[in-house]
Design a protein around this nucleic acid. Structure first.
Lengths: 195, 195
DNA sequence: CTGTCCATGTAAGCGGTTACATGATTTT
DNA sequence: AAAATCATGTAACCGCTTACATGGACAG
């Protein structure tokens, strides 16, 4: 249930229309919470219905016309409430690990290995992008509370991408030491450790 | 679309019933792909319908009776196919970052700070559990290809939990240097860097 | 006036989550 | 016999994804 609150946050930072929000969710906010324009429009409707936001008064409210929203006091309160309420971290879920484990049992590794290389370069690119942003937006100066918190978030992104690149590199090294494909397991079905 | 393939993998490692699978998804596999028993039963039905698995012949196939499944050749082929096909990494999505950014704009940080502390201890516990497993199941010996790949996956878990604990610790430090609550931003609405 | 963006929407489908239902087995 | 547990399932809801639809503004 984070999307409505991500939208409230974005609208507090700057009142926007649906499409503008979509654009902002493609860059900054989308780095840690992505959303398509359909999600956003639907959610804007709900938030307006709940009295959390309202459309800025405009001359011609018609289909195909730009419609900007701003946050109402009730919306700000809801956001503060949600932010302070405890929430459990979601367990990390990654299809890549499923694939690795699957490739271990079916005994073919070349396909995944190629994809690991591809993922590595994607993560390297992402990491470079984050570091670029850090250099550009968080130099000296700029240390209000807001800046420091946003920097913290960016740091998390950098740290996570760093682990990914390191882990993928070490995984590829490990693959290099593995026997070639085809040696499908005929080992005597010993009990798996299940770890 | 990873659940069916995670189930195929698990069934290749060892033919199981629905409930046994559920148990295994609570431990080992669930560390990187969790699933409830309802998901699993539904998926078992689909996989059987697709001809990927079959129920092991048993005397009394009735409701409330244990029913074990094994993977058919078509299932193994599908798993090999899926494993080798390229897949894009899902962007990391985390509500915690939404909350941090939200707390930055509403100006109240004590609530999140408490939860950061809680998350830190949760991640520390998880990290300890993984390290325990590593010590127990991946000592010397045990270096077939399967072992090495499973170890690699576990390593990813350890690495990720390590970054989280480090980042959370540094975040809490940063919070210690922040001004107390209430100082809601009345800064002159300067353009956000949007990073 | 045709095509191309811009902007807002609708509809269908799928996976995941939660709550509940029911039969079989084991325990006390 | 009652209660607890094992085992399999149904039903409803919700968020996300993808594809498609509609209307206005503007360029050639």
């Amino acid at each position: 249930m984070s999307l409505p609150h991500a939208i409230l946050t974005a609208l507090l930072e700057r009142p926007s229309s649906g499409l503008e929000l979509t654009r902002r969710f493609d860059r900054s906010i989308g780095y840690f919470w992505s959303a398509t324009h359909q999600q956003i429009y639907r959610e804007l409707g709900k938030l307006e219905g709940a009295g959390y936001i309202r459309a800025l008064p405009t001359e011609r409210p018609a289909r195909g016309q730009k419609k900007s929203y701003e946050v109402l006091p009730a919306g700000r309160e809801e956001l503060a409430r949600w932010t302070s309420a405890p929430q459990d971290p979601k367990p990390w879920r990654d299809a890549l690990f499923v694939r690795l484990r699957a490739s271990a049992v079916v005994g073919t590794t070349t396909g995944v290995e190629d994809d690991l290389r591809r993922h590595l370069s994607l993560h390297q690119r992402q990491l470079a992008e984050y570091e670029e942003i850090e250099k550009r937006d968080f130099g000296p100066g700029r240390d209000t509370a807001q800046d420091r918190l946003q920097h913290l978030i960016l740091r998390a992104g950098i740290d996570l991408e760093t682990v990914w690149t390191q882990w993928l590199a070490s995984a590829l090294e490990e693959f290099g030491r593995l026997p070639e494909d085809g040696g499908r397991e005929e080992e005597p079905e010993r009990e798996q450790p299940e770890s």
